[in-house]
Design a protein around this nucleic acid. Structure first.
Lengths: 156, 156
DNA sequence: GAAATACAGTACTGGAGAGGTCCTAATTGA
DNA sequence: TCAATTAGGACCTCTCCAGTACTGTATTTC
């Protein structure tokens, strides 16, 4: 499957928790309680997200974490890249990593697929992820094409 | 990263080799020679693709494998699903696999992202993957958005 | 019919990396 | 000063991918 790490999934869950709670200063322990994710894992994820600039932190007794920007300003693509590195469906996107480059005619089209995914994830924001159920309402209109009809106008 | 297995990448390379050579009966050994992929791995992949119905096989001295359908009839989504299982960007697409379902508001939107990817991969066919460089020409018009600035001569 | 060739199926192994833990500073409020 | 919390590592463990090996079955050729 094209799957992402469980940690990335957890990371999104954490960020959506922040998005629901705009107040500054949620501690790692409280996040663990709310999400059910083990605290050491929460701590690890928060450090990663902090380093990526998605969170701000406050040390000390009343310390904690909070979003560095509004949820509307954080694309899902940025979140995933922060947690997993560059978005790529296959490794041969980077030159030299594929031993079969010589006879591989599939490469440019893999890149095309990558771009579609990148585009979809760039237009979906954390705010969209926190909305309960309707995938239609987003800030820029309709960032995700209606799936039932052919969304062949994914302008980039 | 959102990445797929190396074996899936290999599988696509094998299938594109078939697509270039419509003649029936390419042996595993010959495929190994042509693609540079180790023969045992080739054999393993061919068995998987055969079981998925993407290939037909012929035993015996002059035996070998061939595509069961025309390359235009094989969506990339089917290939990937054959090699890796159901297309899903995260595991919680299947109910019961996520321990945090209760407090996870991100789920419906993950599904939306999944659908976009699924859709993109469903409209790209094996025939499209075999085309040398221009991602514009496809059988149903323009299934993938023009990656106009993309094919900057990755040929090696 | 026998031998050679190639597919069919299963089981096994090594290694990389994800997932998770632990420990020791540094910082802040009471 | 003490407790609570983040900062930043090093480290461990276990899963699963990737590759290998072996035995059996089918088909062609001589």
């Amino acid at each position: 499957m094209i799957r992402m790490n469980k940690l990335t999934d957890y990371g999104v869950v954490l960020l959506t928790t922040f998005a629901h709670e705009p107040a500054l200063g949620i501690s790692a322990r409280e996040l663990s309680v709310r999400t059910g994710i083990p605290q050491p894992t929460v701590v690890k994820l928060l450090k990663t997200l902090l380093k990526a600039g998605l969170l701000v932190s406050q040390r000390g007794t009343k310390g904690g974490y909070a979003l560095s920007r509004a949820p509307e300003e954080i694309p899902v693509a940025v979140i995933i890249e922060a947690l997993e590195g560059p978005l790529a469906i296959t490794e041969c996107s980077l030159p030299g990593t594929c031993a079969h480059e010589r006879g591989c005619p599939a490469r440019p089209n893999w890149k095309a697929v990558n771009d579609v995914i990148q585009d979809a994830l760039s237009r979906l924001t954390l705010a969209d992820m926190t909305r309960p159920a309707s995938p239609g309402a987003t800030r820029t209109g309709s960032p995700l094409p209606a799936v039932d009809s052919a969304p062949r106008s994914i302008a980039s």
